[in-house]
Amino acid sequence: MNPAVILDNLPYLLVGAWPEGPIGGVALTLILSLESGLVSGVLGLGLGIALAMSSGLPRRLLVAGLGLFRAVPIVMLIFWTYFLMPILLGIPVPEIGTVVAALSLVGGAYLSYAVAAGIEGIGPGQWQAGLALGFSHWQVLRVIVLPQALQVMAPSFVNQWTALIKDTSLAYVVGVPELSFVAAQVNNRVMVYPAEIFLFVGAVYGALCLSLDRIAMRLARRLGPNVPDRGRPASSRSTED
């Protein structure tokens, strides 16, 4: 083992060629995961609401579309967006943009089911109470149901961000210099220390994912007791318990 190879190349592994060149390495991995996490969160919220509130043919079509994005391998989706987005938009699209789009579509498809489950998990009594007060269905969703459902969804959003951090490693297929890409470049340059280099890469991914996993567990413990059960407020459950 030769840790010197990591120390000698640490700035490149952390930030790529920045500031003389484009940012890369760990920094770009975090940027990709953060951007795709935010976009997939918005997509997942919108699609999850549509999934929970729709029925009949629109719901079946939505389920089919979401199932497609959940079934297609992410690396294939990255290729599709890389080649199709410039054609559809008529303008060049940066490689980073295509990767964010692909990861966001996959993440949004998975999150939509968590959002729909959170909404459907709120008991019918909440809806009936809101409608009895004169609210419309959308007002009940926005004011009463969604704030409670978000407590259930929060750990799922964090867990999805954890998955996105690992999935950013697939960006190398279109030449995006994230952590695994720059690690391969360092390995090709030094030639004889692959174990040290890729152990470092694994340690970085492990540290990032474990940190987010701890956050998800804390959110689950903190928010879990406050989630209503079948439409009853948490205070009534605690009284009965």
Rank of each mutant, 00 (worst) to 15 (best):
Y193T: 04
L212V: 06
A114F: 14
L30S: 05
A220H: 11
I31K: 03
N159Q: 10
A216Q: 09
G97S: 12
I6R: 00
A17K: 14
A207W: 00
V158S: 06
W161N: 03
G206T: 14
A50F: 04
L131Y: 09
V145G: 00
L10Q: 03
G97E: 04
A171T: 10
F200D: 01
I87V: 14
G134V: 01
S236W: 07
G41I: 05
I122R: 11
L212M: 12
S169V: 10
A171G: 07
I87L: 15
G125K: 01
L105Q: 06
A207Q: 04
R230V: 10
L30F: 04
T98N: 09
G65I: 02
S36I: 05
Q126G: 06
W18F: 13
A52K: 12
Y82Q: 09
G24W: 09
Y110D: 07
F198G: 06
I122H: 02
A149Q: 05
L62E: 09
I197S: 02
L7T: 07
F200M: 02
G21K: 03
L43K: 00
L219W: 01
A203W: 10
W138C: 00
V5S: 03
G90M: 04
D213R: 03
T168S: 09
L30A: 01
I144W: 07
G24S: 08
A50Q: 04
V204Y: 01
L30T: 03
S238E: 15
E20A: 14
A114N: 10
S40A: 07
V5D: 01
T162S: 13
S211I: 06
Q151D: 10
L141G: 11
L131R: 11
L66R: 02
V174D: 06
L199N: 09
S112T: 05
L51E: 11
L77P: 12
A195W: 14
W138Y: 11
E95V: 10
G97N: 08
V152N: 11
I91M: 12
L150D: 05
V227L: 12
L103Q: 05
W18Y: 12
V42N: 04
A71K: 08
